[in-house]
Amino acid sequence: MEWYQWLAIACLAVDIAGLIIHLTRLISLGKPKDLSHQKGDIVPSLMYAFSGAMSPTRKESAFLHIPTYIAGIFYHLGTFVSIFVFFFFLAQIAINEPIAQFIAGFLAIAVLCGFGILIKRMVIKRLRTLSNPDDYISNLLVTFFQLLTAAVLLHENWQPAYYIIVSILLVYIPLGKLKHAVYFFAARYHLGYFYGWRGVWPPKKI
């Protein structure tokens, strides 16, 4: 293996350690505690929190912002695919050319979505005022991660740049807003628990 591959492995270890710290903190703080008399059911509410409540038919943040919502879906799928491909690279599993080209094509769409979201953040005042450097850095790191994944799938000589970006991204994840990879699930769990306890979710037809 080349030095940049070792670097990426080291940074992966840092990333995992960082995320474990976040996860441990969440677990040590404990599950929701509520002394009021429970009215509803938790499990159906949690299931709804992670499914129906997120669907574009129910969530205003989705159905009022369809282009952003779709871009976000592609962008996140692009990230998951890139992570998957990264582990293939680490395990030195060869990806055959047609599949590599297909993935690269898909990632090109995801990259466009990522840049689109970034441009939106820069152009729209309400997003610009809400943003801090972390928002831009996080977007750029993930978008370049996807871009370079596509590049490496097509041309091996992009490997040094790819692994350097991967390394920076991995170290950065636990420090900035990309840690929402962990906290997204925790926040939705708490919201589902809260509404389930009180019998609000899943919503009943009126």
């Binding site: 976040h22 903190r25 969440l26 677990i27 703080l29 404990g30 599950k31 929701p32 505690k33 205003e60 943040s61 989705a62 009022l64 912002h65 952003t68 976000g72 729209i124 309400r126 997003l127 809400l130 943003s131 801090n132 928002d135 807003k177 840690k179 929402h180 906290y183 997204f184 925790a186 926040a187 769990y189 708490h190």
Partner: peptide, 23 residues
């Protein structure tokens, strides 16, 4: 003084997407 992980989870989760504005 947190009795569970709720506050910790919610304070660390926002991605500043701003899509909540219209709600």
């Amino acid at each position: 003084n947190q009795k569970d992980s709720k506050l910790h989870a919610h304070l660390n989760a926002c991605v500043h997407c701003g899509l909540c504005a219209e709600s």
